[in-house]
Structure formats: C-alpha cells, structure tokens
Write a protein that binds this DNA or RNA. Structure first.
Lengths: 224, 224
DNA sequence: TACGTATTTTGACAGTGTCAAGAATGGGTC
DNA sequence: GACCCATTCTTGACACTGTCAAAATACGTA
C-alpha cells in the first residue's frame, strides 16, 4: 500500500512527463531525469505565466515531486535560474552562427540587417531565456554560477573577435575600434530588445523600421 | 498607559523621522506625512540594500508603523513602486532640461557627448529610480499606474519633439527620421545603461569611451 | 461634547525559500 | 540471495512575504 497513490497515478498521465522523454521511469520513486524536467517545466512556467509566477514549490508540485526535491540538483532558486540562462546562451550562440553562416558571410548592409533582426527576434520571442541571460536579477550581487559567467563572457568575446577579424581582412573601415563598436552596437541591440520586451515600444509595426535604422547606422560606422 | 510604549520611544529617536521634515508630529498616533515617509524610506532601502530586499512589512517596521498602514496610501506594493518611478521621471526631466539648457543649446558633437554622459550618469548613479522607471517589473502585465504611464510617455515625446524641432530649424540633416532616430538612439542609451547597471560591462574605465563612441555615432547620423 | 471621517492596528490566510532530519530506492559486493 | 551504502526523495519546521477584513484610535467639525 503506497503512501501517495494519488500523486503517482497523476504522474503517469501528467502532460509534464511526456515532455521529459528519455529515461524517466514512470511510477517509480526515483524520477529518472528530474534535473532536466525541472528546467523544462520552469521554462514553461516562465514563458506562459511570467517569471514572477515561478516558485520552487509550484514547480515541484507540477512535476509531481515534493517541494524540496529540487534542492538536490540546485543549491537554490538562483542556481536553477542560472541553469536556464545557460541553456539560453546555447540557443543564442546557435542563432548567431546561423545568421553569420559560421563566419563565412562577409559583412554588408544586408548581413547587418539580418543580424539586427535575428538578435531582436531572438530576444523578443524567447523572452524566457533572454530575460534571465541579461536580466540583471542573476548578475546583481554576484550570485551567478561560474559556468554561466564563463558562457556569457565567451558570447561577447566571440562578438568582438568577429568584428576584429573583419577589420584584419580589410572588409570594414580600418578606423573602427572593434571593442568600442561592439560595446555600443550590442548596447543598441540590447536596448531595442529590452524596450520592446518591456512593452515600452508598444507599436509592434515599429520594430521592423527600428531594426532597419539601427542596421543602417551600424553599417555607416563600418563601411570601408 | 500606552499600548506600544517601546515603539513610540523608538520613533522619536529614529533616524527615519528626521528625514521627513515638515509636518510630522513625532510621538502621535497619526504619522503626519506617512505617504512621503514611505516613498523616501523605500528609496533608501532599494539604494542601500537592493530592490529585492524591499518588503512592505520591513518598510513599515523601519518607519515605525504597523505592517498594513501603507495600504491606506498605496493599493499594493506595485503602486508604491509606481510612485517611486514617477518621482524618478521628475528627476530625469530635470536632468534633461539642464543638459539641454532648456532647448537653448543647438545640437553639436559636444552637446551630444554631454547628453549621452548625462543620461548614462543619471541611470547608473540613480539606479534606485532608473531600475523602476524602465525596469520592466512595473510595465509587464499592464499593472502600472495611469499617472506613471502618462509621465513616461511625456518623457519620450519631449525627446522626439526636440529632434524634430532641430530638423525644422535646419540644425541637423533633413534626411533624419526624427522618430526612428529617437527610438534607436534612446535604445542605445538604455542599452549602455542597463549593461553597466547589471554589471555586464564591469570595467568602469570603459564607460567614458563607450559614451564618446555612442555620441560620435549619433552625431554622424545627425550632422547636416 | 458628540459624531463622522481619516488614519492606523490586529488578526488571519495563503503563499514563499530553504534548512535539517529521516525514509525509500537501486546498485554493488559478499 | 542477503546486505550495505550512496543517491534520491519526503516530511516537518521556521521565518519570511503580500494583502484582506474588521476593529481601534485620533482628529476636525458641528
């Protein structure tokens, strides 16, 4: 006679379980892949109900484990959020290398436009990740995970070294300061994204021309 | 024999009381200027201990009133934060009109640099306000106060109409789209500020050259 | 002095993150 | 197969949080 028959019965039919896929043995005391299930469900909650609505207790309840089970995989809530942000950086890098076609595409007015569009699209469509990646909550007071810090530094370093290599190949003006340009242009992209996400640029029809304008401005800076 | 002798004694010597100034009658049941005291103390807590550390209960305790007294002036915590953001917009507008010398200063490479510096300085030094003004928490899910929304719209409209009037006076290139330029440049300013605030541009020595670069980029867009 | 209104308090409820201690499980060794 | 132990999960508990409803207090005014 089990001590939690209802919960177990619920678990086998829970929609949550179907997403975790591989190694989850339904009906067992051990979940099988709790760590991944936690991250997935957390992302789902943030996307569909907002970050504020994510609590460790509700998260565990939805998955079908007890409130503190998660603490075996994440030291605290912050660590969970860091793990999600890391996943975000992985997706972000994938998006970047697709837009840049792995560096095989020379910079141009068009490539700039595609890049700006891609960035803003990623930020505004995958808000669940973007908010955590550059949201501040994670970074303030230095409570972020080591691996997350490494991942994010990598991301920006790639960005700069991209510009630098363009300059060395003579594809852009040699007057450009690669580091400064990267910082300022990234700021612009980040600013556009944040203002859209936060609903301050409410008119969604304005997004496209804003991106175009930004891309033109960037290219005016870079053009040989 | 009073029912809360300790609290009353504390109140008269509390450092909090001394800041409220004018109409507070110390030692009385009625606080005198509780609304203002709440805002001031809330700002203090956010600045010195971080926004996360601000709770309605602690706030009331610090001031020396009971936990729910604040709800007579603010419908909920969100409303309190909106009030602080409004105060922030007032300070922001003051800063702007000082930098622009009330519109009497024609746009130039120097004025651009001063403007960028002023903006970033305001954002990074008065983080308590800036975070709330453009922080998202307040805007998401449309729970912001009417008066706050009005104040913020005003702020941006002023910014655009400034650029527009420059254009009409022939002080900048007539190829500039005032609205688009305003949106993109504001995004850049916001992006720089956020990335500094969030500690992602950790090197504080980089701030100055970043601002300079941004200002140059802006002026290249505007120069007649 | 009495009354109504503005202001503040107490009590209560449903949440939250997280620690410490214990219980169930599964894999490896004899 | 029986045993043991590390891994995984649960229960209980504590100190917090925002906020509602009802009661208490003080003040201005008639």
């Amino acid at each position: 006679m089990s001590r939690w028959p209802d919960r177990l019965r619920d678990m086998t039919t829970s929609s949550t379980r179907s997403t975790s896929g591989s190694s989850s043995r339904s009906g067992s005391y051990h979940h099988g892949d709790l760590r991944q299930a936690l991250v997935s469900e957390a992302v789902r909650i943030i996307r569909e109900e907002g970050e504020k609505s994510l609590s460790m207790r509700k998260l565990a309840l939805n998955i079908g484990v007890s409130r503190t089970a998660s603490y075996h995989y994440f030291a605290d809530k912050q660590a969970l959020l860091c793990a999600i942000a890391e996943e975000g950086f992985r997706r972000y890098n994938a998006m970047l290398s697709e837009v840049h076609q792995n560096g095989r595409r020379p910079p141009s007015a068009e490539s700039m436009r595609d890049f700006v569009r891609g960035y803003v699209q990623f930020a505004t469509e995958q808000t669940e990740y973007y908010d955590l990646m550059f949201g501040g909550h994670i970074w303030e007071s230095g409570t972020s995970t080591d691996s997350l810090r490494k991942e994010s530094h990598n991301s920006f370093r790639n960005y700069v070294s991209n510009v630098r290599s363009w300059k060395e190949q003579g594809l852009i003006s040699d007057k450009v300061d690669a580091l400064r340009f990267s910082q300022v242009s990234w700021s612009t992209l980040h600013g556009i994204s944040r203002l859209i996400i936060d609903g301050i640029y409410a008119d969604s029809a304005a997004i496209e021309p804003i991106c175009e304008n930004a891309a033109e401005m960037f290219w005016r800076e870079l053009a040989p």
